[in-house]
Computed example of a mutant assay.
Amino acid sequence: MMVLEIDSVSHAYLGRRKPKWVLKKASHTFEAGTFTSILGPSGSGKTTLLSLASGLDTPTEGAIRYRGQDLRDMGLSRYRRRHAATIFQSYNLLTYLTGIQNVRAAMEITGIRGGRTRALEWLERVGIPADEARRNVLQLSGGQQQRVAIARALACDVDILLADEPTGNLDTGTAGQIIEIFRELAHQRGTCVIVVTHSHHLAKQSDQILTLAKGRIA
């Protein structure tokens, strides 16, 4: 079942003289229960595409639809709150909170119940034990902060999970665990998982690989 559609999407950033087109007529449909990787060199438009699919921005041209409805008609904040969760490369954690509190804050926004217990379960699944989960996130290493960011997204129980280089700061063992979680979410829970990555190893574990080149999906 189609859950997310990228329809002839072009996107430009305004410069002093002329717009800089980062995406050009990109189109693809993403199915529920699939794990998709997006590869491409730096500057190819991967992060821009993920930002648009996450509902953080709107395309200059074309449309992005969730189950047939344009995100602009649905409302970007509603889409992000109810249907899509994003794992950011820069973590985007609330730095004045602990790991548990970061996860619980996201759960409260999306209306997910389970509280402290659910938050701890997801943190432990990504390799953050309870004693570290109770520490302020600034007291954690970069890799640990990335794991908290991943747990925060996974705990929200949405049907689209988007991730920007989610294993870039993780050791090989933990990266493998995260990939297995993505596969489980897609194949057992029916989540649509979309990952932007430079890692060909991660991409090989996904169901399909898309390649962005010069703003187009090849």
Rank of each mutant, 00 (worst) to 15 (best):
A133F: 11
I209G: 00
L93E: 09
R189N: 10
R78E: 15
Y91C: 09
K204W: 04
T117Y: 08
R16I: 05
V148E: 01
I209D: 00
L50D: 03
D73M: 09
S199H: 09
D164S: 05
Q177V: 14
T211H: 14
A63K: 15
K20R: 13
G190E: 05
G127N: 05
W122F: 14
F35E: 03
S42Y: 12
D7G: 00
Q144I: 13
A151Q: 08
F88N: 03
N169Y: 00
G62T: 12
R104V: 15
A133Q: 10
G68H: 10
G190N: 07
F182V: 01
Q101E: 15
L71K: 11
V126F: 02
G15P: 07
M2V: 15
L170C: 05
M1I: 13
V195S: 00
L52F: 11
Q89G: 07
R147I: 03
L94K: 07
Q205W: 06
G114Q: 10
V193C: 01
R152C: 06
R183G: 10
I179N: 08
F88G: 03
A106H: 11
L138N: 13
R125D: 03
A53H: 03
C156E: 14
L23Y: 09
L50P: 06
V158R: 14
T197C: 04
R135E: 03
I128R: 03
G75P: 02
R147K: 04
G68L: 04
G43F: 12
I160S: 06
I100C: 08
H187C: 01
R134A: 12
D157P: 01
L93M: 09
A149F: 03
W21N: 05
N102C: 11
I160K: 08
I109A: 11
L202A: 01
H198V: 11
T117G: 09
V137P: 00
T60S: 15
S199I: 08
V126D: 00
Q145I: 07
S199V: 07
S206W: 12
S37N: 03
P59N: 07
L39D: 03
N102A: 09
Q144Y: 05
I181A: 00
A133W: 11
Q205P: 02
A186H: 06
L93H: 09
I87P: 02
T211E: 13
T174Y: 02
R189M: 04
L71N: 11
D7I: 11
A213M: 10
G43M: 11
L210V: 07
D7N: 15
A151S: 07
E132G: 00
A32M: 12
L185W: 01
I64G: 09
N102M: 10
A130M: 05
S37A: 15
A53G: 08
N169L: 04
I178A: 02
S37C: 15
L212A: 02
T211L: 13
R78Q: 14
